[in-house]
Design a protein around this nucleic acid. Structure first.
Lengths: 336, 336
DNA sequence: CGTGGACTCTTGACCGGTACAGTAGTCCAC
DNA sequence: GTGGACTACTGTACCGGTCAAGAGTCCACG
C-alpha cells in the first residue's frame, strides 16, 4: 500500500491536488459538498491529514515554539516555580495552536538543538547569557524572547521586578526593627550570572544600605535542599545570629525554617524568615510564609504573548511584571 | 539579500549542491580540503546549517519525540514526581540527539497536536486511554510508548510495579500489627481510569483482603493539596480512626501527616503513614517518611530507550520496573 | 597491462505540501 | 446584453533539503 498523499486523494476524487489541500487547510475555498466528498475519500484511504513536516517546509513555519534551557533540566523541571512557568507557557501556547519544544543545551557536538530543531521562535529561559546556543539562535534570526534575564538592548524580554520585590522584603524586616540580617541566596558562577539572583541582591541592598546595615550573606548551590539547609544552619549558628533572614526563594526559606527549628529556634519568635516567589506551599506551611509574590503563570502567559508578537514582526517593549510583599506569619519584630 | 541555501553555497564554491549537503551532514563523503572551503564559504555567506524543516521532510524524521499529555499540564509539571520524569526523559533524549515536544490535548478543533505536530515518536504519559489524541497517533502510525499505563496488547509500555509496591506497603503496616487501616487515594473519573491509582488499590487489597481487613478509603482530587488535607483530616477524625494510613503518593502522605498533626495526633505514635514514590522530600521530612520507592529517573530513561527501539522497528517487550519498600520513621506499631 | 576497488563528486528524482496567479462559469445590476 | 464581482477550482512554481545510483580518477595488485 503506497503512502497516501494529497495526490492520491486528488486522483481518487478527480480534482486537483490543490483542491484537496484546500479541503483540509482552507475550507472556505471550496464548496461544502465537494469538501465532504474529499474528506470522505481521504478517510477511506486512511489519510490522516497534511504531513506536518511537509507543511512546515511549505508554509515556512512549524507550529512549535522552542524553550531554550541551558543548565540542568532537572533543575528546571523539578523546581516548583519554574515548573509552574513551563506549565503556563505550554498551556498558553496550546491555546494559540502551538506546541512547546524543549531545547536543552548541546549535549553532543553533532546535535545542537538551538541549531538543528525546527521551531518558529524561542523562549530563552534559564540560560547563561554567554551560551553558544544563543549565538545559534541569533544566526538563525529566530524570533526570541528572553525570560528572567536582560540579554541585550534589542532583544525582547519578560522580567519580574525582582529588585523591587527584594527591596520590599528587606524594608519589611527593617520596619519590624531587625538590625542583624542574614541572606541565603543562590551560589552562582561569576560567569553564569543568574539574573534574578543578582537583581534580588541589589534590591536587598537598596533597602539595607541606606539603613547602614551590612547583611551576612551565605550562598548555596541550587539543587540540594540539603545544601540550603546546611548553609542556613551555619548562618543561624553564628554567635551574632541574625534575627531576620532574607531568602532567594521560598524553597530556601523552608530550608532555613527547618534549619532554625533544628537549632531549637522558633520562627518567627527567634528568627524571622522571608521567602521569594509565593509558591503554592507558602500559604499553607507552618508558619505561613512571609514572601514576595511573583505571578509565575502570568509570566508564562506574558512570555508567550511576547514571542507571538515578535513572530508577527513586532518589536514589543520589554515586559516587567510587578512583585508584591505578602506578609504572613514567618516574620515578627525581634525580641529585645 | 536572498536567503542562503545549499545552492547558493554550491554556486559560490563551484560544486554541486549535494556536495555542500554532504559537507554538513556526511563529512566522510568528501575531502577534508574541499569541506573546509565549503564551510568557509557557508560561514561567509551567513549560512547556519541545513534548514531543519527541509531536512525533516527529506529525511523523513524530525529529530524530536513527542510527549502526549492529556489532562492538566500544570498537574504534570508541578507534581514533583512527574516533573522528575519529564526531566529524565528530556535529558536522555538530549543525549541521543533528540528534542522533546510537549503535545497537550487538543485545545481547539483546528489544532490537534497529536495530529499536526511533526515528531518521530510519542510517549503517552498521563492520559485518558480513550482520548481521541491516541486515535490520531495510531492513524499516523507513529511509534508510541505508553508510560504508567497499559493500553492494549500490541503497544509498547513502560510501567512500574505499582501493585507490588502497594502490596508491600500494606503488608508492612499489617506486620506492625495495624488492623484499622485507612487509604487516601486519588479521586479518578470512572472513565479516566488512572492506571497507577487502580493498580495501587489492587495492591493494597492484595495484602488486606487475605487478612480480612476492609480499609476505609477516602479519595481526593489531584491538585489541591488542601483537598488532600481535608480528606485526610476527615478520615482521621472518624470515631473509628484508622491507626495506619496508606497514601497514593508522598504528597498525599505529607498532607495526611499535616492533617494528623492538626488534630493533635502524633505520627507515628498515634497514626502510621505510608507514602508512595519516595520523592526527594520523603527522606528529609519530619518524620522521615516510610514509602514505596519507584525509580522515576529510571522510568524516564526506560521510556526513551523503549521509544528509540520502537522507532528502530523493534517490538520491545513491556518494561516493568521494580518498586521497593523504604521503611523510615512515619510508621510504627499501633499503641494498644 | 588490465581489472577492481576506494575515494570524490555529480545527476536526477523525490519528500509532501502551500502560495499565488490565473481561468472558467454564474449571478446580478443597469 | 454587457460589464463587473464573486465563487470554485486548477496550474505552476516553489519550500530546502536528502537518497541512491553513477561517473570519473587514481592506485594497487595479479
Amino acid at each position: 500500500m503506497a503512502k497516501v498523499t494529497l495526490q492520491s486523494i486528488a486522483d481518487r476524487v478527480g480534482v486537483s491536488r490543490m483542491t484537496v489541500s484546500n479541503a483540509f487547510s482552507r475550507p472556505d475555498q471550496l464548496s461544502a459538498e465537494l469538501r465532504e466528498r474529499i474528506l470522505a475519500a481521504a478517510d477511506e484511504l486512511g489519510y490522516v491529514g497534511p504531513d506536518p513536516s511537509a507543511r512546515a517546509l511549505a508554509r515556512g513555519r512549524t507550529g512549535s515554539v522552542g524553550l531554550l534551557i541551558n543548565g540542568s533540566l532537572s533543575e528546571a523541571f523539578e523546581d516548583a516555580v519554574s515548573a509552574a512557568f513551563l506549565a503556563a507557557v505550554s498551556d498558553e501556547l496550546a491555546g494559540r495552536g502551538m506546541a512547546l519544544t524543549v531545547m536543552p543545551s548541546s549535549a553532543t557536538q553533532s546535535f545542537v538543538p538551538a541549531r538543528d530543531v525546527a521551531v518558529d521562535g524561542v523562549l530563552v529561559y534559564i540560560c547563561d547569557p554567554t551560551a553558544p546556543d544563543i549565538g545559534w539562535l541569533e544566526r538563525r534570526k529566530l524570533p526570541m524572547v528572553v525570560v528572567d534575564h536582560n540579554l541585550s538592548e534589542g532583544t525582547a524580554s519578560v522580567n519580574v521586578d525582582d529588585r523591587g520585590g527584594a527591596r520590599l522584603a528587606a524594608e519589611h524586616v527593617l520596619d519590624l526593627g531587625h538590625r542583624r540580617i542574614g541572606i541565603v541566596t543562590l551560589e552562582t558562577d561569576p560567569e553564569m550570572l543568574n539574573y534574578p539572583a543578582r537583581e534580588r541582591m541589589l534590591g536587598w541592598h537598596d533597602a539595607l544600605d541606606p539603613a547602614g546595615i551590612e547583611p551576612v550573606v551565605v550562598t548555596t548551590p541550587y539543587h540540594p535542599s540539603t545544601a540550603a539547609f546546611d548553609s542556613a544552619r551555619a548562618l543561624l549558628d553564628r554567635p551574632d545570629r541574625p534575627t531576620a533572614v532574607l531568602c532567594f526563594s521560598d524553597a530556601f526559606a523552608f530550608a532555613t525554617i527547618r534549619a532554625a527549628e533544628s537549632l531549637g529556634l522558633q520562627v518567627p519568635a527567634d528568627v524571622s524568615v522571608v521567602g521569594f516567589d509565593d509558591s503554592t506551599p507558602a500559604a499553607n506551611s507552618r508558619p505561613p510564609l512571609t514572601t514576595v509574590r511573583q505571578n509565575v503563570a502570568g509570566k508564562g502567559r506574558a512570555a508567550v504573548a511576547t514571542i507571538a508578537a515578535v513572530m508577527d514582526g513586532a518589536q514589543p517593549d520589554p515586559v516587567m511584571l510587578p512583585t508584591e510583599l505578602v506578609v504572613r506569619e514567618s516574620t515578627a519584630a525581634p525580641v529585645r
